[in-house]
Amino acid sequence: MLKWFRRKRKEGPPEEPPAEREKAPVSREEAPERSPEAEKGLWQKFRRGLAKTRDRLKDTLGDLFEVDRLVDQAFMEELEEILVTADIGIETVDRLLEPSRRKLLLGEPLKTGELKRSLREEMLNMLSLESPPFPPEENPAVIFFIGVNGVGKTTTLAKVAWHLKNRGFSVLAVAADTFRAAAIEQLESWGERVGFEVIKQAPGADPGAVVYQGLEAARARKTDVVLVDTAGRLHTKYNLMEELKKMVRVAGKVIPGAPHENILVLDATTGQNAVSQAKLFGEAVRLHSMIITKMDGTAKGGIAVTVAHLFKLPIRFVGLGEKMEDLAPFEPKAFVDALLP
Score class of each variant (00 low, 15 high):
M295S: 08
A284S: 15
E138V: 00
F169Y: 15
E322P: 09
G232C: 06
E130F: 06
A274G: 09
E242Y: 01
S276T: 14
A258E: 04
T293C: 12
L42V: 08
S189Q: 15
P13R: 15
F335T: 03
F145G: 12
R249N: 11
R56S: 11
A182F: 14
G195W: 05
K8R: 14
K246G: 05
T92Q: 02
K3P: 14
D224Y: 10
E325H: 10
E22Q: 13
G150V: 07
M76L: 15
V226G: 00
L96A: 06
I292T: 09
E242W: 10
G214D: 04
G271Q: 09
N166H: 10
K246T: 06
A19N: 03
L327F: 14
L339W: 02
V318T: 12
T53Y: 03
A304R: 07
R47M: 11
R6H: 13
R167P: 02
K58E: 15
V151E: 05
K45C: 04
A274D: 13
I292R: 01
V151L: 09
E283G: 12
S35G: 02
F46Q: 01
G301L: 11
E283K: 15
F196G: 03
F281G: 04
R47Q: 14
L187V: 07
V26K: 06
G41L: 08
I184G: 06
A24L: 11
A19H: 11
Q73E: 15
L157C: 07
D59F: 09
A268S: 13
S118C: 11
L327H: 07
F145T: 10
K165Q: 14
M247Q: 12
K153I: 06
D72R: 02
P14F: 01
G302M: 00
R233F: 04
R102H: 07
V211P: 01
I255D: 05
L104P: 07
E11C: 00
T230N: 01
M241W: 00
L124C: 09
L320E: 09
E16N: 10
G89S: 07
P13Q: 14
F169A: 12
I199M: 06
R249E: 08
R167I: 02
V210E: 12
K222N: 08
S35A: 04
T154H: 07
V174F: 12
L234T: 11
V84Q: 02
E91F: 02
E325Q: 10
L115A: 11
T85W: 08
V198L: 10
S131V: 09
L215C: 03
M290L: 14
V26A: 15
L327T: 09
K23Y: 14
L287V: 02
A161S: 08
Q272T: 10
V26H: 11
M295W: 01
S35H: 06
